[in-house]
């Protein structure tokens, strides 16, 4: 592995920017290849297994009368693509959040972003049932913004400032508060079934129009994030350093937050709450490629997409023919990692 040959590897005390472009390139291209492969597997396995030749045929010579072809084109392909896009979006927003706040625990599900989006979607189900997907997505954006601003608002109100643990706790409290109100709304307006189906976090009901909504958002998010990447790398050294180097930290933070809201809002509006991807993937990526965000952001996107596609495939195999919400699979993968972080970081931060 080329990573072992580099001399400046992990010394946590040193604030120098460790970057491993070779590893990153390998991840980008190798990861992309594996991602395509796993999307293929995800298309093959399901309630009925479909062999590779049929999949190929459905792409090259589509036969509308064949059920398998219908399943592949109408259900499986959009589902796999959406899973990849959602995973990528969540992982990117996690990476941006962690980079900007220098907070190892920052991630959309922990910081109240997802809970906020859920809350607004519950309201939209209650007051305007039968909204279009696009409208629901707008509600989700506003909710994501709401959740984030509450959490950060509490953090900045506090006298001892915005510590990592405080953000995590505020996120937990806001999540509990908002999801309780959402459940209350759901019960009262009798939309509990619609919402809990959506809330459990699933990509099972995805159609092409969801992909059409997700893809542009993910591409726009990725582009802006890449443009911001250098600023985030500098910001990750600390606000003072960034200011000293002449950076407009406020502008970076504002743009970064907007990208996070865009990516998370879109992902949540389609798939409900899928936790821990935004937390775990950026850490793994940073461990692999170093702390240059120009590499971290695209690599996180690839690895996040990969994880969610695999998790989605697994979720169909746990209890066939029923589907297990993919959020539970990512939680079971993510929790051990979270515990590891809590053990490692918990002693240093307060």
């Amino acid at each position: 592995m080329p990573s072992n040959t580099s001399t400046d590897t992990t010394n946590p005390e040193q604030p120098s920017i460790v970057s491993r472009p070779i590893v990153a390139t390998i991840i980008l291209f190798g990861g992309l290849a594996i991602l395509v492969l796993s999307i293929g597997l995800s298309i093959m396995y399901g309630a009925s297994d479909i062999d590779f030749i049929t999949i190929w045929q459905s792409l090259t010579q589509f036969d509308p009368s064949s059920t398998s072809h219908q399943i592949i084109r109408g259900l499986r392909i959009p589902r796999a693509l959406a899973a990849a896009l959602i995973g990528a979006s969540l992982a990117m927003s996690g990476a941006i959040m962690q980079g900007m706040t220098r907070n190892p625990l920052a991630s959309p599900s922990i910081m109240g972003v997802t809970a906020g989006a859920t809350f607004m979607i519950a309201i939209s189900y209650a007051v305007m049932p039968g909204s279009s997907n696009f409208t629901i997505m707008l509600w989700a954006f506003s909710g994501a913004a709401l959740g984030t601003s509450i959490v950060f608002g509490i953090g900045s109100l506090s006298k001892s400032g915005l510590t990592p643990v405080k953000l995590a706790l505020a996120g937990t409290a806001v999540t509990a508060l908002l999801s309780s109100i959402s459940s209350g709304i759901a019960i009262h307006f009798n939309v509990a079934k619609d919402i809990s189906f959506w809330y459990a976090g699933g990509v099972s009901s995805i159609q092409w129009m969801h992909v059409q909504l997700l893809a542009p958002v993910a591409i726009i998010g990725l582009t802006i994030a890449l443009l911001l990447a250098n600023s985030i790398t500098v910001l990750n050294l600390g606000d003072d350093v960034a200011k000293g180097l002449g950076q407009q930290t406020i502008i970076t933070k504002l743009t970064g937050t907007l990208v996070v809201l865009l990516l998370t809002g879109a992902a949540v509006s389609v798939s409900g709450t899928i936790g821990f991807i935004g937390l775990v993937i950026p850490h793994i990526t940073r461990f692999l490629v170093g702390v240059n965000y120009r590499w971290i952001i695209p690599c996180s996107a690839i690895l996040g997409g990969l994880l969610l596609v695999i998790a989605d495939t697994v979720s169909r195999m746990v209890n066939p023919p029923f589907e297990t919400p993919v959020g539970t699979i990512t939680a079971l993968v993510g929790v051990p990692f979270f515990l590891y972080l809590a053990r490692r970081e918990g002693s240093g931060i307060r």
Partner: peptide, 27 residues
Amino acid sequence: VSPIRLILVGIGINSAFAALIIIFQLK
């Protein structure tokens, strides 16, 4: 056991059990 670590670990364990509950509930 530092108080902060206890809380963080608790939050993690909480999510793990919540996920397990959903899996069994669906069965």
